[in-house]
Simulated assay, not measured.
Amino acid sequence: MKDIDERISVIVKACDDKNGFDIKVLDLKKLTTFTDYFIIVSGNSTTQTKAISDKIEERMNELGYVISSKEGYGEGRWILLDYGNVVVHIFHRDEREFYNLEKLWTDSEELILDEM
């Protein structure tokens, strides 16, 4: 569990460092088998979403965590970073409102970031 906590903390801190906003961590362990957590963050522009993605990758690489898959970076509207048990969704604010992943996963438990 310590490994997961570290990854979540590193990712959330990287998002915050690049002024990502409305950061949410959803616990999906009881709902799906393909991942344990979604981290969802918004940016105001494609430049910002790419900067958030770059910072997450930089920090995770420094700690030896290898990304399994990366999608959407070219357009920067919805970037997905797959770290296995943790999947990061970096949205342009307009895309986040449209797709509303939080509503799709309403049965998930949201982790309180202050407790991490």
Rank of each mutant, 00 (worst) to 15 (best):
K2E: 10
K2Q: 06
S9W: 01
V10Y: 02
A14T: 02
C15Q: 13
D16R: 14
D16H: 12
D17T: 12
K18C: 04
F21I: 05
I23V: 14
V25S: 00
L26T: 00
L28M: 10
K29D: 00
K29H: 04
K30R: 14
K30D: 03
T33H: 08
F34L: 11
D36K: 09
D36V: 01
I40D: 04
S42I: 02
S42H: 00
G43M: 07
N44R: 11
Q48K: 06
T49Q: 03
T49M: 11
A51C: 10
I52D: 03
D54W: 06
I56T: 06
I56L: 13
E57N: 15
N61R: 15
E62V: 13
I67L: 14
I67R: 13
S69T: 11
S69M: 14
K70H: 07
E71R: 10
G72T: 08
G72V: 07
Y73P: 04
G74L: 12
E75M: 03
E75P: 00
G76H: 00
W78Y: 04
I79M: 07
D82K: 04
Y83N: 00
Y83H: 03
G84H: 05
N85S: 08
N85H: 11
V86Q: 05
H89V: 11
F91S: 02
D94E: 15
R96L: 14
F98A: 13
F98I: 10
Y99G: 09
N100K: 15
N100S: 15
K103G: 10
L104M: 15
W105H: 03
E109I: 13
E110T: 05
L111P: 03
I112W: 10
D114M: 00
D114T: 14
